[in-house]
Design a protein around this nucleic acid. Structure first.
Lengths: 159, 159
DNA sequence: TTGTGATTTGTTATATCATAACTATCTATC
DNA sequence: GATAGATAGTTATGATATAACAAATCACAA
C-alpha cells in the first residue's frame, strides 16, 4: 500500500519516467505506442490531474493531432486497457497511472475542493471488498474504488 | 457486513417493505414522497436491477407521469440524496437501496454477464481504503466501491 | 522491397447521459 | 384563502461516448 499522495514531487522527472516506462513496456510487448497515444499520455502526465476526454481532444486539436472524439477515445481506450491511464468513474475523467507497467489495483482519493486526485494501491482480494465477494460467491475481475472528500491542503482552515 | 447477495427472495414482499420503509422515513423527516418519486422508487424495486435514467423516464412517460429528462433526474436526485436509491457509477445507472433509512456505506458487485447487481455493506473508515486515506491525510466524505466480475450463476459452466 | 493482412487513424453521424433556466402548480402553514 | 417554499412541466442545450466505414500506416514475411 503506497501513495504518492498529495505531496509535491519532481514533476519534470515524473513525466519523463512515465513516458519511458510505457515506451519500454510497449517495445517489450509489441504494442504500438503511436504519436497520438504518446501525446495523450504526455498531456495527462503534464497536467497531473483528471482530464475529460474532450479536454484532451482540445489539446490534440490545437496540435493538429486529431479533431474528432473517436481519436481521443481510442487513444484513451488503449492507454486504459494496458493500465497506463485510469478512468475516474465518478468524474468521467482520466488520469495518468503512477505505476505504469506494473500490475496493480488502484484506489483514488478525489478532493472535492481542489479537484486533485491521488492514486494509491490495494490488494484486490483482501479487505472488506474481498470478504464481501467471497461471502457472495462473486468473482472479482476489476474494481472501482474511489473516495471523495478533502485532501490535506483543503482541510487546512488557514488556506 | 451483510449481503442479500445474488440469492433469490420474496420479491413482492421486498417491494412492499421498501416502499413502506421510505414512506415512514419521509413522514418522520418531513420529506415529500410525491407520486413521481414514489413511482420511480417502485420501478427500481420492481425491476431489481440497475436502470438508466432514460429507461426509468420511459416508464414514467407511458404512465403520463412526466416525459422530459429533468422529471426523472429530479426524482432520482431526491432518492439518491436520502439514500433510498444508489447510483452505480460504472454503469451510469440507478438501483434501489436494500436498506433504506439506515445510514450505511454500500459496496456493489456487478455481474458483467447477466448485469445483476448485488449490494453489500462496509465500514467506511476500516479496511484498506481507510488505511490509505489515513496515510495520505485525506478526509473521506463519500466512497464509490464497485466490483465487476461474475456472479455465482454466471460462473457456473453448466448454464 | 514489396505484397498482404492487421492495426490505427480520419471523419461523419448519432447515441447516451445530464442539467440550466424558466414557468406553472402544488403543499404546508399561517 | 394568502403566501412562501418546494415540486413538477417544458424547452433547450451541454457533456460524454460510440457505431460505421474509408483511408492511411505498420508489421511481417515472401
Amino acid at each position: 500500500m503506497d501513495s504518492i499522495g498529495f505531496a509535491s514531487h519532481d514533476h519534470t522527472r515524473c513525466i519523463a519516467s512515465g513516458l519511458e516506462a510505457v515506451d519500454s513496456y510497449c517495445a517489450q510487448n509489441r504494442l504500438q505506442f503511436t504519436a497520438v497515444r504518446r501525446r495523450v499520455l504526455e498531456i495527462l502526465l503534464q497536467q497531473h490531474h483528471a482530464l475529460g476526454a474532450y479536454e484532451i481532444l482540445e489539446y490534440l486539436r490545437q496540435e493538429g493531432l486529431g479533431s474528432q472524439p473517436p481519436v481521443a477515445y481510442r487513444a484513451l481506450d488503449f492507454l486504459v486497457k494496458h493500465g497506463f491511464v485510469h478512468k475516474i468513474e465518478r468524474l468521467n475523467a482520466f488520469i495518468a497511472c503512477m505505476h505504469p507497467g506494473e500490475p496493480h489495483t488502484p484506489v483514488f482519493m478525489i478532493c472535492r475542493k481542489c479537484a486533485s486526485v491521488a492514486e494509491a494501491q490495494r490488494e484486490p482480494m483482501q479487505g472488506q471488498l474481498g470478504a464481501v465477494a467471497r461471502a457472495a460467491g462473486f468473482l472479482i475481475e476489476r474494481t472501482v474504488v474511489e473516495a471523495e472528500g478533502l485532501c490535506p491542503k483543503c482541510q487546512d482552515p488557514s488556506e
